[in-house]
Design a protein around this nucleic acid. Structure first.
Lengths: 168, 168
DNA sequence: TGCGATTTAATCGGATACGATATATAAGTG
DNA sequence: CACTTATATATCGTATCCGATTAAATCGCA
C-alpha cells in the first residue's frame, strides 16, 4: 500500500535485515518480535472478554473454526488452525467435557474423530462480540484489512518456506 | 471507518469488522488469528536455526534484549519483552545454568536481580543469523518495514487500550 | 488373502504464558 | 523504632505448543 519502490525512508531506518549495523540487532527491529509481542497483546485484550465465557483464546478460535463446518476431523481442524492433534486433542476434550462440542469416531474410518459444535457451543459464539470493541483497540482504522492481509501473507510465506526445504 | 481506496486487491472483501455478515465470522477474517498463526509460523521457522544452538525462541529474544544493555533488572527486561517475572525467572535461570548470563542480587536493593550476558552468551548471538535467511522467507520484500511498523503499532495500541480501561 | 507401510489420534515430556500467591526487601508513617 | 504499605522476584497451578512416540485402523500390493 505504501511506496513499494522506495526502500529509503528519510526518517525511518527500517533496514531490510535486522542484522545490518550494530544497532540492527535491537529487538525493535525484529519482525518476529513484533508478531510475537502483538500476539501476547491480543491474548491479553481478549482475556477479559473470554474469561466471562470461561473460554481460553485457543479454545475460542477452535470453536470459531468449528462453526464454519460440521463433522470436521481433527486433521481438518488442525489445517485451519495450524495445529496438530497433540495440541488439539486436549483442547477438544476439554470443550467436549463442558458440552460445547461432540467427538465421535467416524464409522467409515475409525481412525478419524469427527467434531461438531453443540447448540450450546454455537449459542456461546453468538454471545461473544470481541470484534466491535477490539477493532477500535487495534487503532489501525482503515489500515485494518491491509495489515490483516499482510500478516496472513507473511504467515503463509513462512510456512511455505518451512515445508519446502529445497530453496537455499 | 470504511472507504479505503487503497484496497487494490480486486477479490478481497476485507471488512473492517469480522462480525459483519454471516461469513464475517470466518477465521480468515480475524486479525487476531492472523497474528496468532503468524507467530506460530515464525516459531517454526526459527526452530531449526535455534535448535543448533540449543536455544528456544523465547530464550533467544531474551538474550537479544539483554545484549542491548548490561545489568538490567528482571523488570526492565520484562518491559522490553512484555513479560513478567513469573515467565522470565525460569528462563533466566535456565540460561544462567548453561552459562550464557549471570544473575546477581543488586547490593543497593536486594529485591532486584541484575542480569547480564556472559561473553559466551554474547558470542552465541554473533553466531546466529536468522535475519538473512528468514527475511527472504517472509516474502514481504520492500513491505517488510511497513508491516513491521504496522504490527508494532497494533501491539502498542492493544496494550494501551488494555491498561487504560477508562474508554468504554 | 496376508502383512508391512501409511495414516490418524492420542500420549508424554519439555518449555513457555499467565493469574494468583508467597517471600523478602525497602519505604513510609507516627 | 514498630508497623504498615509498597515493590521486586519467585513459586505454583492451568493451559497451550511442539517433537517424539504409541496405538489402532486402513491401505498397498504381491
Amino acid at each position: 500500500m505504501r511506496a513499494s519502490k522506495t526502500a529509503k525512508q528519510p526518517g525511518t531506518p527500517a533496514p531490510a535485515s535486522p542484522q545490518a549495523g550494530k544497532d540492527g540487532r535491537k529487538l525493535s527491529n525484529f519482525l518476529c518480535f513484533a508478531v510475537y509481542s502483538a500476539n501476547l497483546a491480543f491474548g491479553r485484550a481478549y482475556k477479559p472478554i473470554l474469561d466471562e465465557l470461561g473460554l481460553t483464546y485457543t479454545q475460542y478460535i477452535a470453536m470459531v473454526a468449528l462453526s464454519e463446518e460440521d463433522d470436521q476431523t481433527v486433521s481438518m481442524l488442525g489445517e485451519k488452525l495450524f495445529l496438530e492433534s497433540n495440541t488439539l486433542t486436549p483442547i477438544l476434550k476439554k470443550l467436549e467435557s463442558v458440552g460445547y462440542l461432540t467427538r465421535h469416531r467416524d464409522p467409515t474410518d475409525e481412525r478419524q474423530v469427527r467434531v461438531s459444535l453443540t447448540s450450546a457451543g454455537r449459542n456461546l459464539l453468538l454471545d461473544v462480540d470481541p470484534g466491535s470493541t477490539l477493532i477500535a483497540a487495534t487503532g489501525l482504522g482503515d489500515d485494518f484489512p491491509v495489515v490483516q492481509q499482510s500478516v496472513t501473507r507473511l504467515r503463509d510465506n513462512l510456512l511455505r518456506a518451512h515445508t519446502e526445504p529445497g530453496k537455499s
